[in-house]
Simulated assay, not measured.
Amino acid sequence: MTQEPTPYDDSAPDRPSKTQIKRDMHALLDLGKQLVELPTDRLRQLPLSESLFEAIRLAQRTTSREGLRRQVHYVGKLMRQADAEAIRTQLAIWQNGSRAETAALHRIETLRDELLQNDDALTDLLRDHPAADAQQLRTLIREGRKEAGRNAALQPGQEPQRKHYRALFQALKSLGDAPDTP
């Protein structure tokens, strides 16, 4: 025979503990702080109620330290009625998306440096991207190499030229996803 839990029995948790409630409230407060730091155009893309949106905008305009602290706590309180998981998901997408974009730009930079150093890199690139304008890339690489040579001979304090270096980067960027270089 099983024994029914009594109203004072701690073995049957029917509600979260005080500590868990505090953790949840602090998590919502931290999420509210992140929202206050976002630009307005990003805020409009989130599933926020009108009152929460206005509270965030007021916090962004508040200059007083104590006033800002109070307003952020109010935002945290309003976050209890918001869809926090949807907001967290969108913030994660934005954060990881920018990491992926940064990684793609780094791959393009590496490819550009490889093209300026190694003649065989252009052959590999043209094999992977047959629609690329080979003549334009050859010209940009040749001019980029000349530019690098002139920049190496500059006196201290003189500004290096980067016109063809940047143009080669833009040409590679326009090819789409650059292949990973070894």
Score class of each variant (00 low, 15 high):
Thr102Met: 12
Ala103Trp: 00
Val72Ala: 10
Gln90Gly: 01
Arg107Val: 07
Ala84Gln: 09
Met79Cys: 09
Arg80Gln: 09
Lys77Met: 01
Ile108Pro: 01
Glu85Met: 09
Leu111Lys: 01
Leu105Phe: 12
Leu91Asp: 02
Ile87Ala: 03
Ala100Asp: 15
Arg99Gly: 14
His73Asp: 15
Arg107Thr: 07
Gln71Ser: 12
Gln117Glu: 11
Ile87Lys: 04
Ala104Ser: 12
Thr110Ile: 08
Thr110Gly: 02
Leu91Arg: 02
Leu105His: 06
Val75Tyr: 03
His73Asn: 13
Gln90Pro: 04
Asp83His: 03
Leu115Asn: 00
Ala100Ile: 13
Val72Gln: 14
Thr89Ile: 05
Ala100Val: 14
Gly97Phe: 11
Val75Phe: 03
Thr110Gln: 12
Ser98Lys: 14
Leu115Gln: 03
Ile87Phe: 06
Ala103Met: 08
Leu116Gln: 05
Arg70Ala: 11
Leu116Gly: 04
Asp83Tyr: 04
Asp83Ala: 08
Arg80His: 13
Tyr74Met: 10
Leu105Ala: 10
Glu85Leu: 07
Tyr74Trp: 11
Gly97Cys: 13
Thr102His: 14
Thr89Cys: 09
Ala84Ile: 10
Ala86Leu: 08
Val75Thr: 04
Arg80Ala: 09
Ile93Glu: 09
Ile87Cys: 06
Glu101Ala: 13
His73Ile: 10
Ala82Glu: 13
Asn96Trp: 05
Ala100Arg: 15
Gln71Lys: 13
Gln95Tyr: 04
Glu101Cys: 07
His73Val: 12
Asp83Ser: 07
Glu109Ala: 01
Ile93Lys: 09
Ala100Glu: 15
Asp113Cys: 01
Ala92Gly: 03
Ala86Arg: 07
Asp113Phe: 01
Glu101His: 10
Leu105Gln: 08
Gln117Phe: 10
Glu85Arg: 07
Tyr74Phe: 12
Gly76Ser: 07
Ser98Asn: 15
Ala92Asn: 08
Ala100Tyr: 05
Ala86Lys: 07
Arg70Cys: 08
Glu85Val: 10
Leu78Gly: 03
Ala104Leu: 09
Gln117Cys: 11
Trp94Ile: 06
Thr102Pro: 03
Arg88His: 08
His106Ala: 14
Asn96Tyr: 07
Leu116Trp: 03
Ala86Phe: 03
Thr89Ala: 14
Gln71Phe: 08
Leu105Glu: 04
Glu101Pro: 01
Ser98Trp: 12
Gln81Phe: 04
Asn96Phe: 08
His73Pro: 06
Thr89Asn: 12
Leu78Ile: 06
Gly97Asn: 14
Arg112Pro: 01
Ala84Lys: 06
Leu116Thr: 04
Leu105Trp: 06
His106Ser: 12
Glu114Lys: 05
Leu115Ala: 02
Arg88Trp: 08
Trp94Leu: 02
Ala82Ser: 11
Trp94Met: 08
Gly97Leu: 14
Glu109Gln: 02
Glu109Tyr: 00
Lys77Val: 03
Ala86Glu: 09
Arg99Ile: 13
Met79Ala: 11
Ala92Thr: 07
Glu109Lys: 00
Gln95Ser: 09
Arg112Gln: 00
Gln95Val: 03
Ile93Gly: 02
Ala103Asn: 06
Tyr74Ala: 10
Tyr74His: 14
Ala104Trp: 05
Arg107Ser: 02
Ala104Lys: 05
Leu105Ser: 07
His106Leu: 13
Leu115Glu: 04
Glu114Gln: 14
Leu111Asn: 00
Gly76Gln: 05
Gly97Thr: 13
Arg88Asp: 10
Val75Ile: 02
Glu114Tyr: 08
Thr110Phe: 00
